[in-house]
């Protein structure tokens, strides 16, 4: 379906502070595949990382241990079939493409942690959420999966939530970023 545009629930372009202290961008088109694999299956062994951690696979797929027995695989847009096929489904293993089901955004910059600390009660200090840490929690009252994934030498988080909350969450994070100088795009409705 090359001609059918993938629509993100997030209606706004990137938001950032002029000094780069914090920026926020839509990454919803990222391929997201959830794998559930019982202990002892080949898939569980192949995926490798335990709950709470992540690793970058040689094929460019980011493998995150999102829950006990559950992994979420992130890859470039449009790679869902390929990523799903890479999982050994021998045994009690299930693979679900959730690319359409989850909105995703990236928050980065030296103030990213301070901004998130306004809306998320999880301890984000380096000891408790180091680069590569995977965790779930409430962000502005929406349950999200978070990945600390430093990028271009900056602190950065990938945040994903149920798709229908995507626009609300993006707007709320944008609002939280205004303290650090971010300008809200026109028409961005906070509530």
């Amino acid at each position: 379906m090359p001609d059918i545009e993938f629509k993100s629930p997030i209606a706004h372009g990137p938001v950032s502070a002029p000094d780069g202290s914090v920026s926020l961008e839509d990454e919803t088109s990222t391929t997201k595949v959830v794998v559930r694999a019982a202990t002892g299956t080949a898939a569980a062994a192949d995926l490798g990382v335990p709950y709470g951690q992540s690793r970058l696979r040689a094929d460019g797929t980011l493998v995150c241990g999102t829950r006990p027995g559950e992994w979420t695989l992130f890859a470039a847009a449009g790679r869902a079939t390929e990523v799903a096929a890479s999982v050994d489904t021998d045994g009690f293993v299930n693979v679900v493409d959730v690319t359409h089901g989850r909105a995703m955004m990236r928050v980065s910059g030296p103030k990213a942690t301070a901004m998130l600390a306004k809306v998320c009660d999880i301890d984000l200090t380096d000891d408790m959420a180091p680069d590569g840490a995977v965790f779930s929690g409430s962000v502005a009252k929406v349950t999200c999966d978070l990945l600390r994934s430093d990028w271009r030498g900056e602190v950065s988080y990938l945040i994903s939530c149920e798709r229908s909350f995507g626009n609300y969450l993006f707007a709320t994070l944008a609002d939280a970023s205004t303290e650090f100088g971010a300008e809200l795009p026109t028409g961005l409705d906070i509530h």
Partner: peptide, 9 residues
């Protein structure tokens, strides 16, 4: 308890 916003266990 149910870990609703966390591991869902």
């Amino acid at each position: 308890w149910y870990c609703r916003s966390g591991c869902r266990r």
